[in-house]
Amino acid sequence: MFEARLVQGNLLKKVVDAVKDLVTDANFDCSSSGFTLQAMDNSHVSLVSLSLRSDGFEHFRCDRNMSMGMSLGNLAKILKCAGNDDIVTMKAADDGDTVTFMFESPKEDRVSDFELKLMDIDSEHLGIPDTDYAATVTLPAAEYQRICRDLSSIGDTVVISATKDGVKFSSSGDVGTANITVRQNTTADKKEEQVSIDLKEPVALTFALRYLNSFAKATPLASHVSLSMARDLPVMVDYQISDMGHLRFYLAPKIED
C-alpha cells in the first residue's frame, strides 16, 4: 500500500505543470525513502529527475517499492481540480491499476477524490553520477526565465560561458546577436535577488534554447535555480523544493558536427 499526504498540495501541481510539456508519460517510483520520477523527453535530449523525500510529507507510507505509470497530461487535469490551498493525499494499492488523489480544503468542509488510471510504461533508469562541475551559477529563477525567453527571440541556441567576470549567455540569429551577463551579487538587499557563482575553471557550452525555456516552467517552485556546467557534459538545471527535495533537468550540450 502506498499513501502520501502533502499539506502543500499545490507543490505537486507545480511539479507536474513544470514537466508535462517535456514528458508525456512517466513512471513515478515510490519507496520508503520517497517519491521520485526520472524521465527523458520524447527526443531523448533532456532528462528530468524529481525527488520528493518521504520526510517532507505529513504522512508517508510505502510498504513495497512500486512504479506508477501516469500520463502527465491526465495527471495535470486532475491536479487542476485541487484548490490552491488543498491538502493532497495520494493512495494506491500494491497490485492496483489506479491511483487516487484526495483533495481536502483547509477548512475541512470539502473533500473530493479523483482516480487516475495507471499505465504500463517501459522506461530505462539512468544512473546520474555525482559530477565535479567546473562552474555553478545560482540566480533568481525569474531571472533565468527572463534570460531564456529574451534570447529565444534572437536565436535557437545559447552559448553559456562562465569566467571569473561572470556568466554570459549569448545568442545569435537572423535578427542579430544578444549577450546577457550575470555577475555575482551576494550583497543584494533582497535575498531573492542574489546571484552566486562558484567557478573552479572557465567553461563554455552551447545549448538548445527550446529546452532551457521549457525547464523555466519550474519557476514557481523555487526562488532560485542553479546551473551547473562541466566541459562536454550535460548542464544540470536544479530547482530546490524547500524541505522536500528537488526538480532537476539535464540537457546535453550541442557539439560541432
Partner: peptide, 13 residues
C-alpha cells in the same frame, strides 16, 4: 551542430 542523446552521458542504473 549535433545533439547527442542524453542517455549516452549516463550509465544504466
Amino acid at each position: 551542430m549535433k545533439q547527442r542523446d542524453i542517455s549516452s552521458f549516463f550509465g544504466k542504473a
